[in-house]
Computed example of a mutant assay.
Amino acid sequence: MSHPNVIKLLEDWQSTKPELYPIAAAIFQRIRQQAPELIETPKYGGILFSRTKAESSTICGVFVYKGHVTLEFSQGAQLNDPYRALEGCGKYRRHLKFKHLNDLDAKHLNDYLTWAIQA
Rank of each mutant, 00 (worst) to 15 (best):
A24S: 06
F98T: 08
Q33W: 04
I31G: 01
L101Q: 15
D105E: 12
D111F: 08
F49H: 02
R32N: 07
Q78E: 13
G61E: 14
A119Y: 12
S57W: 11
L101D: 13
L10P: 00
E72T: 10
F98R: 07
I117M: 05
F28D: 04
D81I: 03
K43W: 02
R32A: 00
E87K: 05
Y44W: 13
K8P: 03
A24I: 02
A106K: 14
H3S: 07
Y112K: 06
T58V: 05
D105F: 08
P36V: 04
Y83W: 10
T70S: 13
I47R: 09
R93A: 05
H95T: 08
G61N: 07
L48Q: 02
Y21L: 01
L96F: 11
C89T: 13
L9H: 10
Q75N: 08
K66G: 09
A116T: 00
G61L: 01
F28E: 06
Q118H: 12
K43G: 00
L79E: 01
G67P: 08
C89V: 13
L10R: 15
G88W: 11
E72G: 06
E40D: 15
E72H: 09
Y112I: 01
I117R: 02
Y21Q: 10
K91R: 09
L101N: 11
K97N: 12
C60E: 00
L79N: 00
G46S: 04
L38Y: 02
P22A: 03
P18M: 15
F49P: 04
P82M: 09
K107A: 09
S15Y: 10
T114H: 14
V64S: 03
T16Y: 13
G88Y: 12
P4F: 01
